[in-house]
């Protein structure tokens, strides 16, 4: 039996050195000790949290956060497939890039949430208000995560939240403009903002009652 903390540390080391095979091996090891979902939640989430926090503190870089998320997503998909019953019992969640095409932030959050066992729909990039309102309505989305890189794109979310105000959907925003202006998320009428994958996960956990 391996100690969970030791596995977390080993995984973090493997991810930071981009050692994909080693990282996948550790995640498999964790999943054989407990249920796959527990392995995903404990070992993967904790390792990704450390890396995300390291980025926030300036110790690690965004590329490390991104590649780590990709590797973990792949490994968790193997132990917890898309159709796994644990993934199904969740409120409908979706993620997209609003009004621009810079995908990295969205991809990081998408991978991190999936690696933590959540399932969410990728709405893509270049989204506009009209499209999103239709998608939310049609797909009955109750948690909508939006990423932006440019300030004008972020400001356009205000109109979107206005149009969504009578729908049972919570809009969570992230991206550079929200990092550099800490009140911007309130100004655009979002439910919350997150600076790191960990914060995104906390918000989603809160909204879903930790239902993974």
């Amino acid at each position: 039996m391996h100690d969970i903390q030791a596995l977390v540390q080993d995984l973090e080391r493997a991810l930071l050195s981009l050692n994909r095979n080693e990282a996948i091996k550790i995640i498999h090891q964790a999943s054989t000790q407990s249920s796959p979902i527990e392995a995903a939640c404990e070992v993967v989430t904790e390792a990704l949290d450390h890396i995300g926090a390291g980025w926030e503190e300036g110790r690690y870089s965004l590329s490390q956060v991104y590649i780590s998320g990709l590797i973990c997503e792949e490994a968790v998909d193997a132990v917890l497939p898309r159709e796994a019953p644990e993934r199904k019992d969740q409120p409908k969640m979706a993620i997209g890039v609003f009004a621009d095409y810079h995908l990295l932030g969205k991809r990081i959050i998408y991978s991190s949430l999936r690696a933590a066992g959540f399932e969410l729909t990728d709405l893509g990039s270049g989204l506009n208000t009209e499209d999103v309102v239709k998608m939310v309505h049609k797909q009955q989305i109750s948690v909508l995560l939006l990423s932006t890189l440019m300030l004008p794109s972020a400001l356009k979310i205000k109109e979107l939240t206005r149009q969504l105000k009578d729908m049972p959907v919570k809009v969570v925003v992230g991206g550079a403009p929200f990092r550099f202006d800490e009140n911007l998320w309130k100004e655009v009428g979002a439910y919350a903002t997150g600076k790191t994958p960990k914060e995104a996960l906390e918000i989603v956990n809160n909204l879903t009652g930790g239902k993974v």
Partner: peptide, 9 residues
């Protein structure tokens, strides 16, 4: 209200 953005890569 902002700089032009690059479209789809």
């Amino acid at each position: 209200d902002g700089p032009p953005n690059s479209g789809e890569p």
